[in-house]
Simulated assay, not measured.
Amino acid sequence: MQNFVKIHNINKEYRAPNGDRNIILEDINLEIKQGDFISLIGHSGCGKSTLLNIIAGMDKASRGYVEVDGTRVQRPGSDRMMVFQNYSLLPWLSAWDNVALAVNKVLSHKPKVERDRIIATHLEMVGLKDAARKKPGQLSGGMKQRVALARALAIKPKLLLLDEPFGALDALTRKTLQAELMDICNLADITTIMVTHDVDEALLLSDRVVMLNNGPAATIGQILDVPFGRSRIPSEIVDNPLYHDLRHELLNFLHHQQQAQYRKVEKMPLVQSAA
């Protein structure tokens, strides 16, 4: 299978007012096949969300490029849909109308009856058929994130981008939505890139876990293949000895990165205040 997403030699830096270079990402190279689920994991500040924003076209790389299905990313587009941790719903609109915003803009060439069918289908897909006319203030956190997922999926994007989509949810709701997301991605064969801090979430959902070294100038430190089949039952996965080996490898990487950060801080010179 040919590579569907190509991330080539991505560097990202900012210039401080004094002219100093603040390098966020350095020499990021990654190729992703169609239908793959990839997780990006690493400590805070390693540039995971920055990389996701570059793939989305919401940020510009200082060097390098991203291609999706053979087209170079220059700006945001409906072929790449992002789901954020904070839901990003308009509070004065119902769940139906929040999804309709995307559908009516991107699929305006379709008849209204067809657009309405698409909206209804995707709200039902995420379990919100009976809550379609409720506004975000009447919905739980998990229901709000379901609306955001329905909105992203309804326009049939080529690439789904998730920035810690379940980070603000309680453990039970998070597990439910993880299972639903896994089923949806398998059914639609959608290519997905997710930023997460959750090792178990990464192992449950991913085909590969991409581990980023600490910043500044973060690079890809390791890529872990997750060899489980796509129809995963969480209770069976966690009982598999291989799962625990993979989990240990991920935690070991993160631990070494944390220890390296501690050593770096210890070597920093103390700043003495003036008498």
Results as ranks from 00 to 15, higher is better:
Q138L: 07
Y87I: 02
P157M: 08
N98V: 05
G167C: 08
M194V: 14
D163T: 04
L139S: 10
R133S: 12
L101K: 09
A188W: 12
A171E: 13
L177I: 04
H109F: 04
A100Q: 03
A131E: 00
G137W: 07
F166E: 00
S108C: 07
A152D: 04
V103N: 02
K144C: 14
F166V: 06
L172F: 14
L153C: 11
V195M: 08
D116T: 05
D163Q: 12
I119P: 01
L149K: 12
V99Y: 01
A100F: 01
V199I: 06
L172M: 15
V113F: 11
D183A: 15
P165E: 10
L162R: 03
G141S: 07
I190A: 15
W92K: 04
E114W: 08
P165M: 07
M194D: 11
L177N: 06
K129T: 12
A188F: 15
L107H: 08
A188D: 13
Q178F: 05
W96Y: 14
A95T: 03
G127V: 02
D130N: 14
K129F: 00
H197G: 08
G142P: 00
M182L: 15
L107D: 02
S94N: 05
A150Q: 10
V199D: 00
T121H: 08
L172W: 10
M143K: 09
S88V: 05
F166R: 06
C185H: 11
A154M: 10
M143F: 03
N98I: 11
A168D: 09
H109I: 09
K158P: 00
A132G: 12
C185F: 09
L153T: 09
L90G: 02
K134I: 08
R146K: 13
L181F: 10
D170V: 01
M182Q: 14
A202Y: 01
R117Q: 13
G127T: 02
E180K: 12
S88M: 07
W96C: 10
A148Q: 06
T173D: 02
T173P: 05
G142C: 04
E201I: 07
D163N: 11
Y87Q: 07
L89I: 02
L160N: 06
L101P: 00
G137C: 10
K175L: 13
T192P: 01
E201N: 07
V195Q: 11
T191W: 02
A131Y: 11
N86G: 08
N98S: 07
K175R: 15
A148W: 03
V106F: 03
I119Q: 04
L128C: 04
L128R: 00
P91H: 04
D200E: 13
M125W: 03
E124I: 00
L181C: 06
N98C: 03
V126Y: 03
A154W: 06
S108A: 13
N98K: 09
D130F: 03
N86Q: 07
K175A: 14
S88G: 05
L160C: 06
S88Y: 01
K129Y: 09
H197I: 04
R115C: 10
H197W: 03
R174E: 03
G141H: 07
T192F: 04
A152F: 08
E180T: 07
A150G: 14
L162S: 01
E180A: 13
F166G: 09
R146E: 04
R117S: 15
A95D: 02
I118T: 15
M125L: 14
